[in-house]
Design a binder for these strands. Structure first.
Length: 415
DNA sequence: CAGACACCGAAGCCCACATACTAGA
DNA sequence: TGTCTAGTATGTGGGCTTCGGTGTC
């Protein structure tokens, strides 16, 4: 009797998630790691069938058991024939591979009667998997796309940390049973992990007909968010902010959002700066539900494709970093691009309603701009405290003992 | 339509002095 | 090598000045 799944507590655990340090059955593995993009990045592998607590790194072909790095030398040590057993490196995987894909990399799993006695293995075949990621993204076998270099890098890093072969991505239809080297992965894996899926893949076929994707080469865009708290902390109570031209320069002025755009793309963006709002209003967002927003929120390094596409048509006039603290605060508008039902979704034919709404929004914006607090970073609080109580003449500090016209402590005048 | 003028907002400067930093003994 | 001393640089806030943009005549 194997280890029980730590999630459902019912079925036998099959896989081990390193990130969660949890033993899961295949069904729960699928459920847990399909929750968001981050969880999809968890590296999982088979559970050691000997200790039932550690991730297996090899599969003993002779004994038909998966063993961790501790149990492998123990089980195959000594003078017996065990040391001669043929062993196969086990592949790690991330994402939410389908049952067919799992069976591809772990073909022995279904072939092994001893390992398939549980309902979990049966469930592997019948598991309801709705991988909604486009399959036609996959490039033909053997065609190594430069876009996949990140994947290979990731593979390489994980490979060095763990001797087992790591498979990144959920779609691996061309995988052989033995993926022992990174090179093999580079040649055969069609990388389509969450990163590859959302960030836009050059040469992908799914958006070939999309004029936006043609105008904006996603391969040349690099979005990174270092401070998510700032990025998403913007006020969301005023969706109309998005339509304020005065504020649009600050939309992407946040220093925490580095956007590198190719020259041609940048020129295009600048060319449409004046009409960017209208274009945003006219377009239907690629994704606008809360679920996708949640996915984005939870995915620090993997901005969703829909966001990138929207960003591509917005004003990049402030990419040069000419922004101020107030603009950062106003960036709540930009978050509307990322979260929830965006305001441009409202099909409001009444132009008067729109104009009044806009005027109200402008008024609110101007009021907010008046009260905008330009954040000044105080490095030395002690100096600030001293300056706060220092006497002044016309705003200037005066020597101690000299006549002053303003005393911050008692607001009296010396003359 | 161009020029002059007024108005407004933003940026920069100024001050003294405690503190941080650096170089030399 | 570690400690001490002297010199230099930095930063702090309120008011003022300057400058550029905008609107009006």
């Amino acid at each position: 009797m194997g280890h029980i799944c730590e999630f459902c507590g019912e079925q036998r655990s099959i896989v081990y998630c390193r990130s969660d340090a949890a033993c899961l059955c295949l069904s729960c593995d699928r459920n847990v790691h399909s929750a968001n993009a981050l969880s999809q990045r968890h590296s999982r592998t088979l559970l050691c069938e000997r200790c039932n607590s550690q991730p297996a790194v090899v599969r003993c072909v002779e004994e038909k058991v998966s063993l961790c790095k501790n149990c492998d030398p123990i089980g195959h040590a000594g003078s017996g024939t065990g040391s001669m057993h043929k062993r196969q490196a086990l592949s790690c995987y991330t994402g939410c591979p389908s049952a067919a894909e799992l069976s591809t990399i772990w073909s022995f799993l279904l072939d092994n009667p001893s390992g398939g006695d549980s309902t979990c293995e049966n469930g592997m075949g019948s598991m309801s998997i709705t991988d909604n990621r486009p399959r036609d993204r996959q490039v033909p076998q053997g065609k190594f796309n430069s876009q996949d270099t990140s994947a290979i890098t990731e593979v390489s890093e994980m490979h060095t940390s763990d001797k087992s072969t790591v498979l990144v991505g959920s779609s691996m239809p061309t995988l052989g049973n033995k993926l022992n080297t990174v090179e093999q992965i580079a040649e055969s894996v069609n990388f389509s992990s969450s990163k590859g899926c959302y960030s836009g893949v050059k040469g992908s076929t799914i958006y070939e007909d999309d004029p936006f994707s043609q105008d904006f080469n996603m391969d040349e865009v690099d979005l990174s968010f270092e401070n998510y708290e700032e990025l998403f902390n913007g006020s969301l109570d005023n969706p109309n902010q998005l339509f304020e031209n005065d504020d649009i320069d600050g939309l992407f002025g946040t220093k925490d959002m580095s956007v590198s755009v190719s020259d041609s793309s940048c020129q295009d963006a600048n060319a449409v700066e004046g009409s960017s709002i209208k274009r945003v209003m006219a377009m239907q967002p690629a994704c606008s539900n809360a679920e996708s927003a949640d996915s984005l929120m939870s995915c620090k390094t993997e901005p969703t494709f829909c966001f990138v596409r929207q960003a591509s048509i917005l004003s990049f006039s402030n990419l040069g970093g000419e922004s101020n603290a107030g603009d950062y605060q106003e960036c709540g508008a930009s978050t509307m691009l990322l979260m929830g039902e965006p305001p441009w979704c409202h099909p409001c034919p009444e132009s008067t309603l729109v104009s009044s709404s806009r005027s109200n929004a402008v008024l609110r914006y101007k009021e907010k701009k008046k009260t905008r607090k330009f954040d000044k970073h105080v490095r030395y609080a002690s100096r600030k405290a001293r300056a706060d109580v220092r006497r002044r003449v016309k705003g200037r500090f005066v020597k101690a003992g000299d006549a002053y016209d303003y005393d911050p402590l008692n607001e009296t005048r010396s003359f």
